[in-house]
Amino acid sequence: MKPLLEIEDLHARVGDKEIIKGFNLTINEGEVHAVMGPNGAGKSTLSYVLTGKPGYEITSGTIRFKGKDLIAMSAEERAREGIFLCMQYPVEIPGVPTATFLKHAVNAARKHQNLPEMDTFEFLKLVREEGRKLGIDNEMIKRPVNVGFSGGEKKRLETLQMSILKPELSILDEADSGLDIDALKVVAGGVNALRDGQRSMLVITHYQRLLNYIVPDYVHIFADGHIVKSGDKNLALELEEKGYADFVREK
C-alpha cells in the first residue's frame, strides 16, 4: 500500500499557543481514517494546518503528501495537488455567483494538470450532473457562494465541490454539524461515492453518528494535540459508550 499522507511529530501553534503537540499519522491510498476528539482538542487546527491556512504556524515535524513536502506548499498548491477541506463553517462570499466560483476552482485544477480550460457548456453539464445527485438545482448555483444558504445547503455545496474536484485526500471537518438526518445521508452519499479504493479521507468529528454513514477503516482518538489511541471502527463505538474522559486519562 502506498502512503498518501505522512505526518511525523507535528507541532503547530496559533499565536503563542501550541495546539498540535507531537501528532503522528499515516494515511495510505484508499483508506478512510476518523479522528475523534473532544472540544478544544485541536481538531479544526489540524485541518487548517494540513490545508495551509495563514496564521497556523508549524514549529516542528514533517508532513509529506504523495512523497512531497506539504509544508512548503501554499494553500492553493495543496488544493491543486489533491487535498480538499470540507469546511465545518463554509464561508459566504457575497457578489460571487456559486457557478463562477466553481468554474474558477475547476479551471485552476485543470491548469495545474496542463488541461485546457473547461468551456461554459461543458462545465454547466458537469455541475448539473453532479448537482442532481446532491439535490442542488440550477437556481442554487446562480446564487452567491453560500449566501443565504441553509446549513444543509452549505454542506451539500461542499460535497458538490468535492465531487467535481475529485481530490485524492478529502478532509471532512465536522461534516455533520448543523445537518438533519436526511441532509446527512445526502452528504454521506456524496462522500461515499468518492470511495473507490484509491482516494483517501480524513474524517474529523466528535460524534460517532457520522461514522455510521461514512464507515472508517481506522479510528484515532485525538486529545491535547496528539493521538492517544488508535483502533478500528469499533473504537468509535467504545468511545460513544465511555466518553472521552476515560481515554484522555489513559495517557
Binding site: T51, G52, K53, P54, S74, A75, E76, R78, A79, R80, F84, L85, M87, P90, V91, I93, P94, G95, V96, T100, F101, H104, A105, A108, A109, H112, P144, Q161, L165
Partner: peptide, 20 residues
Amino acid sequence: FYMRSRGIDEDEARRILVEA
C-alpha cells in the same frame, strides 16, 4: 482562504473579491 483552499491563486482570489 476559502477560495485558495479550492486551488484558486491568491492574486486571482483577490481580483474576484474586489470585483465582487
